[in-house]
Amino acid sequence: MADGRDDPDVEVNGSSGRERVSGEPSPGSVTAKAHAPSDRSSPRREYGPQPMSGHRQAETLPEEILEYTTERRSLSPRVRILWSVRAGAVAILFGIIAGLFATNAGASPAITGVLVLVFLFVGLGLVLARYRVWIYQIRRDALYLERGVFQHVRTLVPFVRIQHVDTSRGPLERALGLSTLVVYTAGSRGADVSVPGLTPEEARDLQQRVKELAIQAEGGDAV
C-alpha cells in the first residue's frame, strides 16, 4: 500500500517536470500549456498543424473558459468515512466466511474476531491510500482524473465527448452529506467516469462547470 501513496507526481503536486499537467496553477499558464509537452519530446513528437489550432482556441476564448477550470483537487475528506463504512461491512462479511472455514478446520471460534480485525485493518489502509491517490481537475479542454491504488489510472475525458453529466447520491452518501458526479461518454467504458466523495455544493458546481465547458466545446469556434 505504501507504493500506492508515494507516487511522486501525486505527492509533489506539480512543479516536477515529469508530469506537465500537475503544474498549471494559474490562468497565465494556458498558452504555455499548449506547448508544454515539448519538454519531454522525442523526435517524433512534432505536432503538425494541431498546436496552432489549439493555440488559437486558447487565444480566442481564454477568459470564459478559465473561469471554469480548477486546480488539482482532492476529494472531500468525509469520503473516507463512507469508504470506511463499506470496508467495515466487507471486512465483517469476509471475516465471518473465513472464520467459518477456520472453525470447521478446528480453530477456536475467537479466530473470527481476529480475522475481521485483520480485514478491517487492511481495508482501512486501502481507504486511506485510495483517498490520497484520488485527484480531479477541470482543465481547459478535458476532465482529468487520477485514481487507483493497485492500478493507478490517469484519465483525460475531453469535454467534446461528454454526453451528459449527473450527480447521484446513495442513502449512505446522503447521510454523510456526500455526492457523486457521473460523466457519461459514448465510449465502450460508458459511465465508468465518476468522481465520488464530493460535497453536494461541489458536485453541483462541478456539474455546472462541466456542462458549460461541454457546451462551449460543442459550439466552440464553429460559430
Binding site: D3, Q151, H152, V153, T155, P158, T185, G187, V193
Partner: peptide
C-alpha cells in the same frame, strides 16, 4: 474517434 484516453500503472 477518441473518446477518453488514460495512462495506468499497476503496482
Amino acid at each position: 474517434r477518441v473518446q477518453t484516453v488514460s495512462s495506468s500503472q499497476t503496482i
